[in-house]
Design a protein around this nucleic acid. Structure first.
Lengths: 213, 213, 213, 213
DNA sequence: AATGAATGAGAGTTCATTCAT
DNA sequence: TATGAATGAACTCTCATTCAT
């Protein structure tokens, strides 16, 4: 019967507790994203966090809990750009901004991208519930917005979900497949050329045909 | 000092050897693609193949050799559609055909897609050499062909490598992120709607502007 | 990435660590000397030490490290009698004392003797460096001393290295070939009769001829 | 229920059988003497013999039987020099000849020497019976002969068994501890210098004092 | 709040031996 | 006679987790 913060989650955590949980999660992000769930070891995480292994387990019930906590915690930041899409804004610009934000996140948060990719790739065994409860409603909502824009003729007709898939796939590719991208591109400005490429691609896709209207 | 086919790899393999090696590789594909390299165990592979664990090691020197053999062996089939792009064909149709073939492969060979994704995601520790020696030359060659088409005005201007990244990302997404796609799409005809979506997207991107000509 | 004293070998070891490392090395000496390196198992060592097998590996990185540690650690004690030979002492008595000390060691430290014999017998795969760097210089030095004594006429002429080989061989024989000695000698005082036999043999060999002087 | 030569040991073995048994035993000698019983593998022996592993087991019931057969078979040759000591010959020369023959055997049959050393070193688990039944009587007999010589004043007084131990130890040392001898001696004529050293040593030991008589 | 010590449950791998032909 | 194929048992080593302080 552990008498640790794990069990008394309701108690207000101390300064040290907060700092250490943050340290652990940051170390875990580093390790999990680089080696996958099974490939990561508590020893690596402990070393990366500068804490002892039992101390890690003082803050989290186990390896799995660290992983799940990490996934759930990052989910919020991960979906922020999608939540920022404004139904009342200019449809094309809202979506193009979304593309750029997602691409920026691939550059700035590649570990998070790879963490999610690893999880989904293996069938989302630890994150399936969250996909249903958090992601799905958000996607449904956004799809409705996009459908509305299309019906209003402000956007070329497109399947909203496949559009989202394409945006996610193309932007996250630069983080998830970085090892491959690095081999195939000699240029240093991958991010910038990718940005203009994706801007062109999605702009062409989404811009409604003037003459049709 | 091993005791069998492993050591005499040059000798012509018997019927049983061929059958069992195939069984093992098929089982390994199933297990590695689902759990990643570290997450997969020889026990799982043995069970999946219907062989005993030591018998697996009678045919392969170890877990790693199975994995590398699998990667190298699949590389060929995996790149076939790209090799099939005909420099003398109609540029737009060649590329659109390539997109569809890649999408078909995501549906027909999802395990292969996930196997590669797993490997790249973790930095391609066991496949980096092949990326350099096999993939890079092929991509360089294809990029030159596409650049030629663009210069001839037969294709809208586009960065060839980013184009390829986008094609790979969007098509493989349906295999690699299947767990997510399944949650977010209720329709049964995901493949068909994806096909028409990607066809529209890349056709719009690649079709040269009439007035420019 | 190990998790403990193994990794922080430089830190000062705790009481428990010292005790358990000693236990393990003692158990390992027992098992390695009786069965050889390959014939010994961690299970045997663990049982002999009264520790669990993983706990053995908490203190040593692996079977090989235990063996090497043991060899290096014993080397010092093993060579002590040779180091104790005093260049300024009476030549004959110095050497006869050395013989008796070596014989005593065979009786008192038979496991150590067999451990070294096992290692040398198989080509010294794990101890060759130490033979070169530790044993050879010491032997060279001692040989020079003996040569000096001979030149001074204080010792009968003899090849110093072959003399050492003979001393080592005859004294260690009682430990290394104990199983055979036991079968062939019924007497209980093997050590004492051996002592007087070897004393006579080496004294006759080394005593300079009176008429020569 | 094997129906192989193993079971029908009484049947007269064919030409091929004899040749293969010889091959196997020779290969086994090579491997066992180099790596010890546990360190040797049937695979190594099979490779060395140029036969398949199951074929090895067609001729011998198992690893242990090969080892025991080898030991017993070599015992005869190994003891030949001792049997050749002639009770009616000149005592000193008989024994000095024995010393030289044993030293020659160390040079010519080092593998046999190491095989026996390995076995005795580990307590003679597989050869103990033979020591009792074959070696002991021979040694008892020889000891009686030597004692007779001493009583007749034809040999300096010496414990016959310790004498034999010393002869065995010093001569076999050059085979059993070859790895160490090689490190410590730079000369190429180790055998010759050893021969004269041992000749001097044992001659001094055994020559009866003239003035005493 | 923290950690050195310890371990059960596997992991990959080796090897003497057996099976089937 | 001979050997490819197969395996049970055992081996070294790893790792998430627990114990004791």
């Amino acid at each position: 019967m552990p008498q640790a913060p794990v069990a008394q989650a309701s108690r207000k955590p101390s300064r040290i507790q907060l700092r250490n949980r943050k340290r652990i999660l940051d170390a875990a992000l580093e390790v999990f994203s680089a080696h996958g769930y099974r490939g990561a070891t508590l020893d690596q995480i402990a070393a990366e966090a500068g804490l002892s292994k039992p101390n890690i387990l003082y803050y989290f019930e186990g390896k799995q809990e660290i992983h799940v906590t990490l996934l759930n915690q990052l989910m919020h930041a991960w979906l922020a750009p999608l939540r920022a899409v404004d139904p009342d804004g200019n449809p094309l610009e809202e979506l193009m901004t979304y593309v750029q934000r997602k691409l920026d996140m691939s550059r700035d948060l590649p570990r998070e991208s790879r963490l999610f990719a690893n999880e989904i790739l293996q069938g989302a065994p630890r994150m399936a519930p969250h996909l249903e409860s958090v992601l799905k409603p958000l996607v449904d909502e956004t799809a409705a917005v996009i459908d509305g824009w299309i019906e209003a003729g402000r956007l070329a007709p497109v399947d909203p979900r496949h559009l989202l898939f394409s945006i996610w796939a193309t932007t996250q590719h630069y983080a998830d497949f970085e090892a491959q991208v690095r081999v195939l591109t000699s240029a240093q400005d991958v991010h910038d050329t990718a940005a203009s490429h994706l801007d062109r691609m999605f702009r062409r896709l989404l811009t409604p045909d003037r003459d049709v209207i």
